[in-house]
Simulated assay, not measured.
Amino acid sequence: MKIFSEVCKRRSVTKAAEALGITQPAVSLCVKDLERYYDVRLFDRISHRLYLTAEGEKLLVYAHKIIAMFDEAESEVKNWHRLESLRVGSSVTIGTRLMPGYVKKFSAAYPGVHISVTVDNSFEIEKKIINNELDFAMIEGTVHSVGITAKKFKKDTLVLVCGPESAWACKTELRPEDLGEMPFLLREKGSGARELFDSTLFTHGITVKPEWESISTEAIISAVESGAGCSVLPLGLVERELRQRRLLQIPINGICFERYFYIIRHRDKHLSKAGISFFKENGLAPV
């Protein structure tokens, strides 16, 4: 239709070919194909000039509409960053430490993309991925669903901490068996931190019944600082308190709480251009 419209505009096959940057035979063939398809004559050829027939005039009206709609579709699809939205999930640790910076960087590059973030424990985030409530997510710890594709992107360390007035504050190192005697304040079951803590102690034959369980890392930090007990928390979330001596770190002989952060998505879900751009802007490889 663009070729037909250009021929109508130029009243010449040769000039239309020059304007479109294609050969004259290609333009002539296109016009002939249209005439054959609609079984009408679109042009009268008089004195080496082209004049639209009545049928040609009718087709030109539709050609203009088709070209306008095509150009609009091209513009809208290619300018996806003005239209698209992104649903991102995050576990609590990543949501606290990393996600705000990731979102800020992406939004600065693509202000037209609406991005929503859901922060929850890793178990709940996995469920939302499976139910197609999120486009992708970042979690810590083991991925449990076979329907999820996962890729490591960062290593993380958890540390044992207590308050400065705690009875354990004077300890320079603990034996693994000491952990069974300590009052622990822990994240809820389903969180990546809790899963790592439980599985690590299980491999050492140690059982702990927590004094507190909370979905809020901030609440646990505050309680530990006040002397209510000890906890194992991500180093990145307690660095400030450790520097200020509001919390103290106690090494454990033979035990190290380490894990990876993962980027996850449903294995059958296509990663959109907005999703790919999110990872690119933040120097991450998409899953």
Rank of each mutant, 00 (worst) to 15 (best):
Met1His: 10
Lys2Pro: 00
Arg11Asp: 08
Thr14Leu: 10
Thr14Trp: 08
Lys15Gly: 03
Ala17Pro: 06
Ala19Gln: 08
Ala19Cys: 09
Gly21Cys: 08
Ile22Tyr: 02
Gln24Glu: 11
Ala26Val: 09
Ala26Gly: 07
Leu29Glu: 10
Lys32Asp: 12
Glu35Asp: 07
Arg36Lys: 14
Tyr38His: 15
Phe43Leu: 06
Ile46Gly: 02
His48Pro: 05
Tyr51His: 13
Glu57Gly: 08
Lys58Pro: 03
Leu60Glu: 10
Val61Gln: 13
Tyr62Ser: 09
Lys65Glu: 11
Ile67Cys: 10
Ala68Asp: 14
Asp71Ser: 12
Glu72Lys: 13
Glu72Tyr: 08
Ser75Asn: 12
Ser75Cys: 12
Trp80Lys: 04
Trp80Thr: 07
Arg82Ala: 13
Ser85Cys: 13
Ser85Ala: 11
Leu86Met: 07
Leu86Ala: 06
Gly89Tyr: 04
Ser91Cys: 15
Val92Gln: 06
Thr93Leu: 05
Ile94Val: 15
Gly95Ala: 07
Met99Gln: 09
Gly101Glu: 10
Lys105Ile: 12
Phe106Leu: 09
Tyr110Asp: 01
Tyr110Thr: 02
Val117Ala: 09
Thr118Gly: 03
Ser122His: 09
Ile125Lys: 01
Lys128Leu: 15
Leu134Asp: 04
Met138Tyr: 07
Ile139Met: 04
Ser145Gly: 07
Lys155Cys: 10
Lys155Ile: 07
Glu165Asp: 14
Ala167Leu: 11
Ala167Tyr: 03
Cys170Val: 13
Cys170Ala: 15
Glu173Asp: 08
Arg175Lys: 14
Arg175Ile: 06
Gly180Thr: 05
Glu181Pro: 00
Pro183Met: 03
Leu186His: 06
Ser191Ala: 11
Ser199Glu: 12
Thr200Arg: 01
Ile206Asp: 04
Lys209Asn: 11
Pro210Asp: 08
Glu211Met: 11
Trp212Gly: 00
Glu213Asp: 09
Thr217Phe: 15
Val232Cys: 04
Val232Met: 00
Pro234Asp: 03
Leu235Tyr: 12
Gly236Ile: 06
Leu237Gln: 13
Glu239Lys: 14
Glu239Gly: 09
Arg243Asp: 13
Arg245Trp: 07
Leu247Met: 12
Ile250Ser: 05
Ile250Gly: 00
Ile252Ala: 00
Asn253His: 15
Gly254Arg: 04
Tyr260His: 15
Tyr260Cys: 14
Ile264Trp: 01
Ile264Ser: 04
Ile264Cys: 00
Arg265Trp: 10
Arg265Ile: 08
Lys269Asp: 10
Leu271Tyr: 06
Ser272Gln: 07
Ala274Arg: 02
Gly275Lys: 03
Ile276Trp: 10
Ile276Gln: 13
Ser277Gln: 15
Phe278Lys: 02
Phe278Leu: 14
Phe279Trp: 08
Asn282Glu: 05
Leu284Thr: 02
Leu284Trp: 00
